[in-house]
Design a protein around this nucleic acid. Sequence first.
DNA 1: CGAGTAGGATACAGTTCTGTATTGGATACA
DNA 2: TGTATCCAATACAGAACTGTATCCTACTCG
Lengths: 201, 201
Amino acid sequence: METPKRRRSATRARLLEGALEVFAERGFHGASVEDICERAGFTRGAFYSNFGSKDELVLALFEATTDRLLEQIAALLPELATQPGTLLDAVLGLLDDAAPDQRQWHLISTEFTLHALRSPEAADALVRQRTVFRQRLTELVEEITRTSGLQLSVPAEQFVRLVMALHEGARSQSLLEPDAVPAGSLEHTFLPMVLAAVSRP
Amino acid sequence: METPKRRRSATRARLLEGALEVFAERGFHGASVEDICERAGFTRGAFYSNFGSKDELVLALFEATTDRLLEQIAALLPELATQPGTLLDAVLGLLDDAAPDQRQWHLISTEFTLHALRSPEAADALVRQRTVFRQRLTELVEEITRTSGLQLSVPAEQFVRLVMALHEGARSQSLLEPDAVPAGSLEHTFLPMVLAAVSRP
DNA sequence: CGAGTAGGATACAGTTCTGTATTGGATACA
DNA sequence: TGTATCCAATACAGAACTGTATCCTACTCG
């Protein structure tokens, strides 16, 4: 039982993986179907046998990426919720470690965001993903504040939105000017202040 | 004296204007030269008479955009530096009002950023632009703190980087979820806290 | 071992885009 | 008024890409 359907889903996976790389390198419209196939080691025959079009692949890629992201979160949450460190270490740790490759992830997720800003359906999907992601983080924050006796003067979700926004903007700066803005520097400089301002012992 | 060179530069300007719109709508690679010309009311003949390629036009567009941005800043700075309101009102006002159309500006600047992350030359240009922009903001902050007797415990530039990062991330959220995140809400919720934390009377 | 089938490769037709070469028309100027 | 010039339109050739239709190969299973 090694080749009836497993082979098919394996090539699907390789195509998705290739698409991820090529999209990160050349962008969404800049990558041709041929590019993706070449990267994955196939020809277009394999592609059109698995996907109806590039758009369809993009959708599948987004869902696959979302799934992986949620898995990563699920894997990281337990230790972060309980073990050492502060609330901010936990939240930032999750944001940082959820994706294996920060640069690629930033390129891809920016590409998705741009796509979503132009297509209502894509926007729906992206907003749903971000909502789930944010909820996980919010629960994490709430749990940590509960167990540590800390209390926030703003809704946890609002606080999470802040951290996400700052993280995204800061990552952009870090990737453009790695020397001037080491990864995480902005967050680690300012977020503790915000936390201090919004928390009561 | 109305048509020797003025006509030429007028079509250049219209092409750039068309490119701005089309790039915002379909993205950089998604827009064909023909699309741009059609939007501007020309055919490709006009295009290739004014630009060598789409890449060249992109560069020109970036510079034109940069110029306009700096003009906007120069126009807004004086009143913001002196007149009423707080430091944050001034900085956020500048970030908000520097571009006439927030959505289009966000799409275009994200597109540029993405492009820059893939091309070292574009990265250079973008970093230069952002550096100038940041310096203007930094000077504004320094001037306001000086005249208002306020003092920051972090370098003004670092503070500006924070505001820019937060602004960018927050704008992304606002555009994706206008109802959940009204424009400016994140900034106006949290930045005063940071400011309070980093300033001494 | 042989027929059937699934999945990917190859070949091909059609479309779209780019870039150049040529043409046409309007304006400046003698 | 006629001519030279400039600029954009048009016409054309070639390249790149998409999507389909057919072929080939390697398993599966009787």
